[in-house]
Nucleic acid binder design. Sequence first.
DNA 1: CAGGTGAATAATGTGCACATTAATTGGAAT
DNA 2: ATTCCAATTAATGTGCACATTATTCACCTG
Lengths: 238, 238
Amino acid sequence: MSEKRQRGAKADPAADEAVYQAITRAIMDGRLKAGTKLVEQTLAEAFGVSRERIRKVLHRLGAERRIEIVPNRGSRVPSPSPQEIRAVYEAHRVLEAGVLVQLAHILTDDILARLDAHLLEEKAAAARGDRAASVRLSGAFHMHLVDALENEELSRFLRDLLSRSSVMVSVYEPAADSACAVDEHGAIVEALRARDVAQAIHLSRHHFQHVEQRLRLDRPQGPAPDLRALFSPEALAD
Amino acid sequence: MSEKRQRGAKADPAADEAVYQAITRAIMDGRLKAGTKLVEQTLAEAFGVSRERIRKVLHRLGAERRIEIVPNRGSRVPSPSPQEIRAVYEAHRVLEAGVLVQLAHILTDDILARLDAHLLEEKAAAARGDRAASVRLSGAFHMHLVDALENEELSRFLRDLLSRSSVMVSVYEPAADSACAVDEHGAIVEALRARDVAQAIHLSRHHFQHVEQRLRLDRPQGPAPDLRALFSPEALAD
DNA sequence: CAGGTGAATAATGTGCACATTAATTGGAAT
DNA sequence: ATTCCAATTAATGTGCACATTATTCACCTG
């Protein structure tokens, strides 16, 4: 007998997750550019799964705001407007202010030690000029701050925000050096160590202001959608 | 001819939304108690729609954390543990601290006027002993604070948190009077008017502490799930 | 030749039939 | 009587066939 599937066959239960992860990574890595249309049939053939499965994954991604779904018109990678980008960064800034307030109340030496360890990592990555690692660790710093509160709700919210801003940097190519970010991160930790909440918030706000200014929001609008046929099936499956 | 549906018939496009709203409301109003199992076939018959439609709505609700879905084992209304409840309230508290920081930067007389107007509404509801309205307006106050920032990300996050905490109060019946809440809300607005951020945060934190303490987290655990057959189809459809 | 209208094509939405897995019940053996 | 196992039942998961809607394109008309 061949591997032919029966009617209601139940294939790999982890297949959903695999497809979900693949598309998510493709979006976050910028391999799927903003505005690209995600055609169900094409994706189904690319992954070698049924269209229904793709469909389910797409709806999940839509619910998580990772893609845009317009009824009867399909799904596509969102191309956020400058306004939406500002909103995400502002949300991040507002959340971190609240996190810092709470962190000051439950701060332990253990938490500070972990933050210090992370800063060393960041500094090392910056020193050896590893840009990819720098970007990743820069986001991880803020995740560390939230994770210190050990609150799944808050961690999830920040994770969502970070995943969305990572899409944005792939649209509006940021100017390179995030070296200064390390120092700013360190300053925030120092303010925390001194239990100076107001100062920590102040530094955090300025930090975000710098990051936001680094984006090229001036001549954005339509980054030439270039949609359709830009995503190769084998590149997706990798 | 009858109203019999064809094979791939496309019924009311708003049917999804109707089912979604109905279930959401039923959960938030406490008509669907925590732990109740949501059987697809039963719901399909209750709403008079196909099981696939129910299925889609259920998955959407699951993605929004409004219900719990265990693969191959179905969906149910979550019965949050005391730990999860604390997490939600803490998240709310942390978010509001950040909101107050940002609000202090962009505060206008117009915003203050709207908050004052809301306080009057709350006071009126409390004065006439309308408990349902009081609870609703109490949540609305915090929504107003976030909405003043005009940031959809933050508003959505708080909306999620509120919808989850509303489920919780239906589990752990709170002691009645939320009268003092009005005064505490008013105090926060006054601190804002005086541009005293630290004081506003301080008051907000204490406010949440009061609300959280009002819940009966002492002898909770299993509120006697009582699942199956407690939800009447006609009560759902209302 | 421009602009719009229709048919043809492509892509999305949905009900249904069945597979699969969990829950339940009945019975036999110790 | 209790425990364990098999068979039945119930509920969830999935592929497929089609309907419906959007898009494209060719053709006709002014």
